[in-house]
Nucleic acid binder design. Structure first.
Length: 526
RNA sequence: GGCCCGUUGGUCAAUCGGUUAAGACGCCUCCCUUUCACGGAGGAAUGAGGGGUUCGAUUCCCCUACGGGCUACCA
């Protein structure tokens, strides 16, 4: 609703970008599992790129060597590939703007940091961690519980603003560790235009002198994101709302580096929240028992394991679909979208500004809808994996496809196929005889024995014959078929579920049908 | 604490100042179904509060409240 006032602005940005290629990027740091919010950011990037025939870039932000986790990059790639969100450019897909890992671009950043120092927009700072901590303690008051390194404090710290040229030169030549910090103007109004929120105002008095280049020579996110977005010709930058408060730093950097007219259109996406309303985190998954990550994630070093949506039994089609509708909606009543449909309908102006709580019940509903929609053929490989993992061997794919089409409406998550399809391939080991016993009598026993005799002699094992004989014998013995259906079902499937009993009998075959009836009869008579 | 963002049923949400305030999930009732589902028909449930602006505010503005985000040599 807040979007319409900006319609004119959108047309403007749209027109101006018509002439150049749309380029977007997803820039995760390889520090662990890829969670819902991350995948949704990828999705929106991807959809926007597809819609405008642009390019979707994957850039790995591995500038924090202390948090780097082996295997995390491959894991991210695997998640994207499972979701069908394949980058046009990435460390593995290549591209003309590489390298796509920030650690491999290390030297580029220094150059720009030094340039900023030359221009007077940044400075060297030699403060040790202890000195920084001391500063925070000294300036800490009730009104200001977390003082920052900025205009109010920087002149009392150890940096090239306070130290004098000689001293700075000496420290640098002696290789005393230092960082480069941006020099934020003392009091300046900054207006940042966000495609989702409109104009957002900041007073630089509230912004601190962020570190741009760390003591280890690596850039921080702030420097790297600006330099790389510029060098990679990014036109639209989508990221989570948690970045909004540092956006003024980025805007200033674009300006100081002299690139402001190339600055991408910003869009800060609403956060995905847990059931308690706080930013969704791994914690929520543990607490409420639903997955947070796209796929299973194992952190060998920490010995942590976190379940993923894929392994929980979600289809990528459903996962993408439910994520797309968290924070965006088409304005119509359509809720089920394929990736292609999403790419066609997606529109930045219909992205919400408020955060959305994740609802696992609704997530399951999406999967159920996709299960109903997809064919047995499409589902075959996935169902086979589930069955095989549980010791159900399937040799006849055609039969499984038939079975899947019969039972998929009854499944919500993939593991449900074990119960719903398993008994078509293996004789039930547990039979719910307790549901038969209360109404079991000699007459029913007689019926099933007669049924067995007839079935053993039957030539044609088709559904009609099976049903016809069943009803004829019931009528001869004098029992309502209704009283016999449930026992038969339980004998064949083991419990009170599944499609039509005669369909089941037909599919599992004469031998198996009579075998299962005999098995249960002996259980009942023992 | 400061700054920033946000606020329509329990949840996701439509609404471009005039509607009986859509729809979906979940919940409840009924129908269909000789099981379980699917499907169908109904039901309960919403504009945070207060001020403006206006003939008329859920919609525009302000204040308050509440929620969230940020406040690292992490992203």
């Amino acid at each position: 609703m807040q979007n319409y006032p900006f319609a004119a602005e959108f047309r403007e940005t749209y027109l101006c970008i018509m002439s150049k290629e749309i380029r977007v990027r997803f820039a995760p740091s390889p520090t662990g599992g890829l969670h819902l919010g991350g995948v949704r950011t990828v999705l929106y990037n991807y959809l926007f790129a597809k819609k405008h025939n642009g390019k979707f870039v994957l850039r790995i932000e591995d500038t924090d060597q202390t948090r780097f986790v082996e295997g995390a990059e491959q894991y991210i790639l695997d998640c994207l590939s499972w979701c069908g969100l394949i980058p046009d450019e990435s460390p593995v897909h290549g591209g003309e703007f590489g390298p796509y890992r920030q650690s491999e671009r290390k030297e580029m950043y220094r150059e720009y940091a030094e340039l900023l120092v030359e221009k007077g927009h940044a400075y060297y700072a030699f403060d040790t961690p202890e000195e920084l901590e001391e500063m925070r303690q000294v300036f800490k008051t009730n009104e200001n519980p977390s003082p920052t390194y900025g205009h109010a404090t920087r002149m009392r710290m150890k940096n090239s603003l306070t130290l004098g040229e000689e001293e700075v030169r000496r420290l640098l030549s002696e290789e005393v560790p230092y960082v480069i910090r941006i020099r934020i103007p003392e009091s300046k109004q900054i207006t940042l235009h966000d495609a989702i929120r409109g104009d957002v105002q900041f007073d630089t008095a509230q912004v601190d002198d962020k570190v741009l280049l760390k003591a280890d020579g690596m850039p921080t996110y702030h420097l790297a994101v600006v330099v790389d977005d510029y060098l990679m010709k990014i036109t639209h930058a989508f990221r989570g709302e948690e970045w909004l408060s540092s956006a003024p730093v980025h805007l200033l950097l674009w300006r100081y580096l002299g690139w402001e007219e190339h600055m991408p259109v910003w869009a800060h996406l609403p956060l995905i929240l847990g059931p308690d309303g706080a930013k969704l985190s791994k914690r929520h998954g543990n607490k409420y028992g639903f997955p947070i990550f796209a796929m299973n994630w194992k952190d060998e070093a920490k010995g942590e394991f976190t379940e993923g949506f894929r392994e929980r039994g979600f289809l990528p089609e459903a996962f993408i679909n439910l994520l797309a509708l968290m924070g965006w909606n088409p304005g119509t009543e359509q809720e089920i979208f394929s990736l292609e449909e999403l790419a066609g309908s997606f529109d930045l102006s219909r992205v919400h500004s408020a955060g959305a709580q994740f609802d696992f019940e609704k997530a399951k509903w999406y999967n159920h809808e996709w299960l109903k929609k997809l064919s047995g053929m499409r589902l075959l490989p996935d169902v086979k994996i589930i069955l095989a993992a549980n010791g159900v061997q399937v040799d006849d794919d055609q039969k499984l496809i038939t079975v899947i089409d019969m039972v998929k409406d009854r499944c919500t998550l993939m593991p449900d196929f074990l119960q719903q399809a398993g008994y078509f391939f293996t004789t039930p080991t547990a039979v719910d005889t307790d549901s038969i016993k209360p109404k079991w009598d000699e007459k029913k026993n007689l019926f099933f024995n007669e049924l067995l005799k007839n079935y053993d002699l039957t030539q044609f094992w088709d559904k009609e014959t099976i049903e016809k004989e069943f009803k004829e014998i019931a009528s001869v013995i004098g029992i309502k078929t209704g009283d016999l259906m449930l026992p038969l079902r339980i004998m064949l499937v083991g419990g009170k579920y599944g499609p039509g009993v005669f369909d089941i009998a037909h599919i599992i075959g004469k031998e198996e049908t009579t075998l299962r009836i005999r098995n249960t009869l002996s259980l009942l008579n023992s």
